[in-house]
Design a protein around this nucleic acid. Structure first.
Lengths: 142, 142
DNA sequence: CCTCCATTTGCAATTGCATTGCATCCCCCC
DNA sequence: GGGGGGATGCAATGCAATTGCAAATGGAGG
């Protein structure tokens, strides 16, 4: 992907979600557009040595609020964030997308498939959101 | 449930899983048998003021290793543990059981239903385990 | 162009959960 | 009765998450 195209996509996404396109935000979003693995704050910090940890932290929160990223808690100890296949909306992530955590390389990947919530919940439960974590071995490690 | 019955069940479970039935372990297991909500270390500590935090922590780990409890990471910041409807086996939790996190009361409940992993994963992915988190409003809060 | 205000950023410090080390205690086995 | 392994309790540490505050930035209005 050409840099120019990438930049366009970044700006488009940020404006679309009502997030002011600051350099830091563009940098963080670029990280996520480069590939579809979920990143933790620590990983992002390592990938962008010049950026301040706390600023990245708040950028991630902002992105999550605005529906650009969503948080994944894959049991690795640190919250991971990932850009979703299709854009989610603020306050409500509409897609039921599974995340695959590879036990070998430790990466968490967004899968491009959708999963269905259980056909029938016990009485009285009102379902608003769902998160599916898959664990196993990814193609590159298998 | 009568106390005697409860005690029997506790002893039975512990021996069945090759866990020596110490007073502390019986106490912790009793907490989980009393109801089916998932508990964090902090919640257990509060429920058993005389018990040492670290000991509870290690008891939970032991229970998890031996297949009595399993860990749930529901995004609340603290790992929760829950007794499962049917016993899991050490090293491998065989049942794909969803957990329901109520956004009102904050409790995480084990649901007595099973969920199916996605019918088809993209090529090369090897599935070993699955965790399904449901979020919404529970019957008591609805 | 300058000023004011809101947002964003950077640094410091704190909180809270998870984890480990070590000494002690208890129980089973010899 | 003594030895050894598991269990417990206390202290201390590591790491992620979070907040407070001050400085920098950018846009709106005069």
């Amino acid at each position: 992907m050409l840099a120019k195209t990438m930049n366009h996509q970044i700006l488009h996404t940020l404006e679309n979600k009502n997030v002011r396109p600051t350099p830091m935000r563009m940098l963080v979003l670029e990280q996520f557009l480069q590939n579809r693995t979920a990143r933790s704050l620590g990983e992002l910090e390592a990938a962008m040595p010049r950026a301040d940890r706390i600023t990245i932290y708040r950028t991630l929160r902002t992105f999550e609020e605005k529906g650009i990223l969503h948080a994944i808690t894959d049991g690795s100890g640190a919250t991971h964030y990932a850009l979703c296949p299709d854009a989610c909306e603020p306050e409500h992530h509409r897609e039921f997308h599974p995340h695959f955590h590879c036990i070998r390389c430790g990466r968490t990947l967004c899968l491009d498939i959708t999963t269905q919530p259980p056909a029938s919940l016990p009485g009285g439960f009102q379902l608003l959101d769902m998160e599916v974590q898959l664990k196993g071995v990814c193609p590159e490690c298998g």
